[in-house]
């Protein structure tokens, strides 16, 4: 077991849990919660693709003695995930608002009991 494998397995497990929750749950807020879990798993997976064991954070200060290309981890996935987290919370806010308005309109938040969805 290396550190990289542990990180990969935990991100995959989180993604799996989130997908199961999205597919198997019936309550709208629980689907939104599972969506948040899955997006956290994807974020960890994306940062993992730039992780190199034994290197340092991509901040070039006095603690880095060698040339920077062999001393730091990949900054590009981290920059991607930084924006992805903030967008994820805005999207889950939108999901929650849609779930609340739907439950107010139909009287239930359970997807099995939403009968009058034909239009």
């Amino acid at each position: 077991m290396s550190l990289s494998l542990v990180l990969l397995l935990s991100s995959m497990g989180l993604l799996l849990t989130g997908l199961v929750g999205i597919m198997a749950k019936k309550h709208l807020l629980r689907i939104a919660l599972a969506f948040t879990l899955a997006s956290t798993g994807v974020n960890i997976l994306l940062v993992w693709t730039g992780y190199l064991a034994g290197r340092k954070a991509p901040i070039i200060d006095a603690s880095i003695e060698e040339i920077a290309t062999v001393a730091v981890v990949d900054p590009v996935p981290q920059a991607l995930v930084l924006t992805s987290i903030v967008i994820g919370v805005a999207v889950s806010a939108l999901l929650v608002v849609v779930a609340v308005l739907t439950s107010r309109e139909l009287g239930t938040a359970d997807v099995r009991r939403m009968r009058n969805l034909k239009w």
């Binding site: 730039g50 991509p58 901040i59 070039i60 200060d61 040339i67 920077a68 290309t69 730091v72 990949d74 900054p75 590009v76 981290q78 920059a79 930084l82 924006t83």
Partner: peptide
């Protein structure tokens, strides 16, 4: 690309934190 950022980013943009430089 990341190699270029790590090697040249310090002189090109003058930022210590490479993640902020990339973002």
């Amino acid at each position: 690309i990341a190699e270029h950022y790590a090697a040249e980013g310090f002189e090109e943009v003058g930022a210590i934190n490479l993640v902020t430089a990339v973002v």
